[in-house]
Design a protein around this nucleic acid. Structure first.
Lengths: 201, 201
DNA sequence: TGTACATCAGTGAACGCGCGTTCACTGATGTAC
DNA sequence: TGTACATCAGTGAACGCGCGTTCACTGATGTAC
């Protein structure tokens, strides 16, 4: 009873909004992006299907918010992975770690990954999404500059380097997710595949 | 009148099947993958919405066939681009050309490209699709082996090389399609971006 | 402390939409005699 | 050449589905007096 009271205190008035985002993440995780509808989110939150309209104008609005969460979490995981890495002699090592973390994240959260990619086109209006995108991109660029400062391709355009690495990692993640990579290369493990794209650099 | 008669001759009995595929390609081109429904295809072919069921069990069945066409045409375009290339001194040149053709194709046919990627998971049952996939993959692998024979990374695993290049090209195409690449790198042209991923090799 | 009022998040019925699928039908074509 | 029949691609009405959206409502909460 008390919990019911608590759940209705002003502090939790914005609670449903967060709950809806959380349910959306859950749906992405368990059922994939096609199952992500406003009504499904409402059902998952144990709320009438009209309720989400109080918090999100439409489905794209909700998606943009979820995508922002996706950007934030992948950036956090990459940063964590990089900071765990011992400083080796190879300046590319942090980049390799970051790439590995990026691919692993995509494979662990395929639904969210799909959403983030597809949503990236639209909703540049969403402030949170724009911020998270920029932040994630800046972190990776910093790693590249760092590697360059330590002697790796010092004269190359860091933006171009970063984008190229990103494209490689992204392509591998995408192809692997859809099983296309494995189909063309049945005996290659994911670790070897990651090493393969890093080797190119 | 004569054309009407002709259109009903036995030779054209299978005509609607081809027409449906062609309309599907058209829808992908003009309206994108989300607009690709059985009913839309029937409308586009000027036929009742029940008619496609005579030729395709369901939407995935049609998609597999369309994806096979996608594989075939991209493989053809790449082959054509490569064969147009003069034999230079750089063994990577044909690979660069092929990569360029791949990315350009994806950007020119975003709907079909999306379909091909998403469909790649399913319908390995579809014989045509399997054949086209293998054929496209074999052609690219041959280019890699050729480059290796001419001195480029002669000791590397050609399968791994091919897949890594494929992943890079695919990632660039995907990110560019969604505008994510340009957003992170506003002043880079597509040509420079392609050069960037090839440069890594 | 108590009362009247305003606010506003969530309800649930209702609407229209396009979808895939089914199925009795029709009519043109090809075949057997 | 003509007639009867079988085949079968395409028709179009009908069904059920889940979706997004609207809107009058309700009831709990916070505020003014």
């Amino acid at each position: 009873m008390e919990t019911e009271l608590i759940s209705q205190t002003p502090a939790n008035q914005g609670g449903l909004r967060a709950k809806l985002v959380s349910v959306a993440l859950d749906i992405l995780e368990t059922q994939g992006i096609d199952a992500l509808t406003l009504r499904a989110v409402a059902r998952g939150a144990g709320v009438s299907h009209g309720a989400p309209a109080r918090h999100f104008e439409n489905l794209d609005d909700l998606k943009a918010e979820v995508a922002a969460v996706g950007y934030r979490t992948v950036a956090t995981e990459i940063a964590a992975a990089v900071s765990r890495t011992s400083q080796g002699s190879d300046p590319r090592e942090p980049l390799a770690t970051a790439t590995r973390a990026y691919v692993n994240y995509a494979l662990k959260h395929p639904g969210l990954f799909s959403l983030v990619i597809r949503t990236s086109t639209l909703d540049l209006n969403n402030e949170a999404l724009r911020h998270e995108r920029r932040s994630a991109s800046d972190r990776f660029l910093w790693l590249v500059r760092q590697a360059q400062a330590e002697g790796w391709k010092p004269n190359a355009d860091p933006n171009l380097l970063a984008s190229s690495l990103w494209a490689s990692a992204h392509g591998l993640a995408t192809l692997w997710l859809h099983g296309a990579y494995q189909h063309a290369n049945p005996d290659t493990t994911l670790e070897e595949a990651i090493a393969g794209i890093l080797e190119l650099n």
